[in-house]
Write a protein that binds this DNA or RNA. Sequence first.
RNA 1: CGGGGUUUAGCGCAGUUGGUAGCGCGCUACGUUCGGGACGUAGAGGUCGCAAGUUCGAAUCUUGUAACCCCGACCA
Length: 490
Amino acid sequence: MAKELTPRSENYSQWYNDLVVKADLAEGSAVRGCMVIKPYGYAIWEKIQHELDRMFKETGHVNAYFPLFIPKSFLSKEADHVEGFAKECAVVTHYRLKTNPDGSGVVVDPDAKLEEELIVRPTSETIIWSTYKNWIHSYRDLPILCNQWANVVRWEMRTRLFLRTAEFLWQEGHTAHATREEAEKEAKKMLNVYADFAENFMAIPVIKGVKSANERFAGALETYCIEALMQDGKALQAGTSHFLGQNFAKAFDVTFLNKENKQELVWATSWGVSTRLMGALIMSHSDDDGLILPPNLAPYQVVIVPIYKNEEQLATIDATVAEITQALKAQGITFKYDNADNKRPGFKFADYELKGVPVRLAIGARDIENGTIEVFRRDTKEKETVSINGIENYVKELLADIQKNIFKKALDYRKSVTRNVDTYDEFKVEIEKGGLLLCHWDGTPETEEKIKEETKATIRCIPLEGDKTPGFCMVTGKPSKQRVVFARAY
RNA sequence: CGGGGUUUAGCGCAGUUGGUAGCGCGCUACGUUCGGGACGUAGAGGUCGCAAGUUCGAAUCUUGUAACCCCGACCA
C-alpha cells in the first residue's frame, strides 16, 4: 500500500499533485517552477501532439520552427502585447561564463554582455511577424498557415505541475491573411479543431466561447476559447484562438500588394494549446485510485497480466498471450504484456489502475484450462470473465464504450453543476458551491472587475452556442444580450 | 512581493534535559511465494540545507543566510 493517493474529498489539489507524481507523469526539477515530464506522461503528450498535428495538417497548416530568443526591442513593438508579457519574461544578458577568480566554480563574464538583451520567448508573435514581413509581398504570398511545436517560458510566481509551469510545451499556430473575414474564419476554424479534439480524444466536454475584454490575449482583437470544467467545480481554459486583426502587421510593418496594386496591412491569427491539457485530462476523469485515461490517448490501451505459479505455467500463458496480442494488433489496439516476475499480480493490478490503463486482461492457469480471460475496465472498475475466442473484438468495443462513457460522465457532471443565476445575492451564494453559473452581464469591464474582486469568479467566456435570450445584468440591471459563463478558474 | 511552514538515508518521518543518528517504505542478495498492493533472512545507504558563534562536546542552543512548500496578489 505504498502508493495511495490523498482522497479527492479530503484535499483536491493534494490529490492532483500526488497523482501526477505517483502515476509517473511528471515531477519537479532542480529548477524552480520547471518540471520533468517523465516517459509515461510524455507518451500521453506525444499522442496529443500526434492527433493535433494530424488535424492541423488536414486543415492546411504546415510546421516550421522559430528561435527561442527574441530581441528585446521586438517585444516592445506592440503596446498591449508588452503590457501583457513584460512582467514574466526571462532575459538573457550575457553569452559567456568564466572561472571564478577565487577558484570556486564559474561566474558570468562581465565582459560578455550582449549588445541587445534577448528575451526567452513567452510566445512567438513578435519574432514570427518580424519574419513574415520578409515573406509577404503580394496577395499571392497569402495566406501563410504555419504552426510550431515549441517550449516557451513565462516566469510564474506560483507553479503547479502541468497546470502552470515556468517552462511549458505547446504548439502555436500563426497565420497571415489578405482579408479580415478570412482571418476571423481561421480563428474560428481552429477553435473548432480544438473543441473537436478535446471532446473526441480527451473526452472532455468544452464550451466554445469568446473572452471578455479583461481576459483577452494581449494584442488580440478577439480571443476565442474552449473552457472545460474540472471535477472540483473549477473551470480551466483548455485552448485559445486569437483574431489579432492588423495589430502585429502594424507593429512590424507587414503589408502586401493587393490585386488592385494597393498596399494593405496583413490580417493575423494565432492559436495554441499547451501541456496544460495534461492537467485538464487528469482532473476531468481520474478518481481516488488513480488516473483514468481515454482510450484514444492512453500510451497503451490494454495491459495484460499473467498469473502463474511456475515457469511452466508462464510458458503456456506466454504462448496464449502471443496469439491474443497478435489479434489485438490486427485491430489496431495498443497493449503492454507485463510478465515481469519481480512484481506480483496484485501489485500490477493496482499499479496499472494508478496509471489509468483503460483495459486490463488477466490470464492464469484456470483461464487457459477454460479458454477464458478476465477483463477489467478502469473507468467503472467492472470485471468479467469472457472467452478468449474473439477477445480482440470484445476489447475493441469495450475501448469505444469507455471512450464514450468517460465523456458522458464528464458531460453529466458539467450539466449537474451548471445553472442559471439571476441575482447577484444568489450568485455570491452559488459561486461558493463551484460549477458554472450562467448569468446576465452588462458587458462592461467594470462590472466584471467588481464581480471578480468580490467573488473571485471570472467570466470564462461568452458562449457562441446555446441560449441567446436577452435579459438584464445581475449586478447593474442594465440590458444584457445573452447569458455568459461565470466560474472560479485555474 | 506580503503571511505561515519545512529542511536529518532515494522517499516519508522520529530524534527527550546538548554526549557524535534511528524508524517505515524503497534498494541489493538468497529462499519461499504469485487469481487484488507477499513474507523471511542477510546487507548497502547520512558533511543532519549552508555559514559563523556558544561549548570539553551541537541534528539539538544563538545569529545570519539559502532553498523548497502552503496561503494571498499576477497569469495559459
